[in-house]
Amino acid sequence: MSRMAATRDGYGDALLALADNPKVVVLEADLGKSTKSLYFRKAHPERTISCGIGEQNMLLVGAGLASSGFIPFASTFAIFTERAFEQMRNGVARPNLAVHVCGSHGGTHTGTDGSSAQSIEDLAIYRTLPNVVVMHPCDDVSTKALTMQLPELGGPSYMRTARNKTPVLYDGRENEIKIGKGVELIEGKDVAIIACGVLVHEAIAAAKTLEEAGVSATVVDMHTLKPLDGELIESLAEKCGAVVTAEDHSIIGGLGGAVAEHLISTRPVPMERIGVQDRFGESAGAEEMLEMMGLKSHHIVDAAKRAIARKA
């Protein structure tokens, strides 16, 4: 049984580990207990700025700090970052100020809080902004590894983390995690399953089921949606001839959109997208939500078979 952990804990651990850099500051909007920035706050209250329940102000306070040489990390729920989208667009991305935004509790996997809290569009909207790096890691180790790389980035970023625990994949494998580089977790030749976040685990389960049916599937953890690892995607399209994307996010504009946009101009192959079908969620358990939204491993298996069947 593998260790279970939530990606948001990896974020909290990373902030604490980054605290040796005196330029690192943390901004909160009354959800530090949830996003796990509270670890940093407890250790370094002098470099933690409470912005109250005011996300628009928080992002621009971050921009002001970044323009003055600091490295601000601002977190709240993914859904509430969206309230400050224009601040992110005009105040952070446009002047290319290195504010690092973390939206926790992303996706329908957030569960019983219901549809208002289940951001299913964050990855899509932030991906449209020039200069912004967009990430959605699948376990606490990779979340920590990615967060630790952000101070060197020199530009803004958005990272979605998840509320609930998932299996840990990368214990002892931190060095494999690089911003902008997908990780090939399973190698196969018939279909490439490209997943992010919570659905990486579903993709792995799907590959095992497919293997039993005699189908050899590659599984990639595409933790960075932007910049997209186009080289890896093209090579997988070449090798496997069919692609399935999987994400706990709208099928519009997220990982599926990014991969489709890339392949259509490079190496078009039959492709299926697993994601939320242009609808809102509701209150239910995390696993129940994945089932309801069509995001479980058996949905990925079916999609893989459809994609393979469409090969010329």
């Binding site: 500051v25 002098e46 470099r47 700025i49 628009q56 102000n57 928080m58 992002l59 621009l60 306070v61 971050g62 921009a63 002001g64 700090l65 970044a66 323009s67 003055s68 040489g69 600091f70 601000p72 224009e86 601040q87 005009n90 105040g91 446009r94 002047p95």
Partner: peptide, 23 residues
């Protein structure tokens, strides 16, 4: 010192600069 254009943003940015000066 600030890329403006959208109203309601400069005071927050200025606050960030003020916090930076304090730190």
């Amino acid at each position: 010192d600030f890329s403006a254009g959208s109203l309601g943003m400069g005071l927050s940015f200025g606050m960030g600069c003020a916090v930076a000066a304090r730190i």
